[in-house]
């Protein structure tokens, strides 16, 4: 069972290009369709994994592994999900430091860099839409961005303050 889990998560880790959320449909197909976990349980796990810090794909792999085979299962699933990208990036790191100075590589990366920024702007807009920003929450988002960008404040403080602020406001509202 652990071996099957490992191979399944290796496959999931290998075929998801473009971030953790791209893994979701694949994970769902592999584990729900095999009957390892029900669709409802998967949605619950998804919601909780999303609210935890850290890498989402890793979180959900650990959750699933633990559900299925305890601590050994969670280790095996996380290892499987990480291993493909680890190996590929390590190979690139070994190789890239040598070709970085190449004129052609430099030209390609001159084109890539502005495109990367665009690839971050789009999910920012999508996240803003799905968060359903009101003018108050939009103010929080703007303040967070400006404090990091212009004032150079560490995102760690922003996260701590935002979570604490949310706790205080949210709990006060419920009391009323």
């Amino acid at each position: 069972m652990c071996w099957t889990l490992f191979l399944t998560f290796i496959r999931i880790g290998t075929f998801t290009i473009g971030g953790g959320y791209a893994m979701l449909p694949l994970i769902e197909r592999e584990v729900v369709n095999r009957g390892w976990i029900t669709k409802e349980d998967f949605i619950d796990l998804f919601a909780v994994a999303q609210s935890l810090p850290g890498i989402f794909a890793v979180n959900i792999s650990i959750f699933l592994g633990y559900r299925l085979k305890g601590i050994r299962g969670s280790t095996v699933c996380a290892l499987g999900a990480i291993l493909p990208s680890f190996v590929i990036i390590l190979a690139i790191a070994l190789f890239f430091t040598q070709i970085q100075e190449n004129v052609w590589v430099e030209k390609i990366f001159r084109g890539l860099r502005p495109a990367v920024v665009a690839l971050i702007v789009v999910p920012c807009i999508t996240a803003a839409q799905s968060a359903g920003l009101t003018w108050q929450t939009a103010l929080i988002a703007t303040a967070a961005a400006l404090l990091i960008w212009l004032a150079g404040i560490s995102p760690v403080y922003i996260i701590v303050v935002a979570a604490t602020g949310g706790l205080i406001c949210g709990l006060n509202k419920k009391k009323q």
């Binding site: 609210s51 920024v117 967070a144 990091i148 960008w149 949310g166 709990l171």
Partner: peptide
Amino acid sequence: YVEAAFTGLRPASVGLIAAAALLL
């Protein structure tokens, strides 16, 4: 408590993404 914390974290993470784009 988790739900309440996320009322603050959700908009802040929009700001975090925006900051990543602005910094680059």
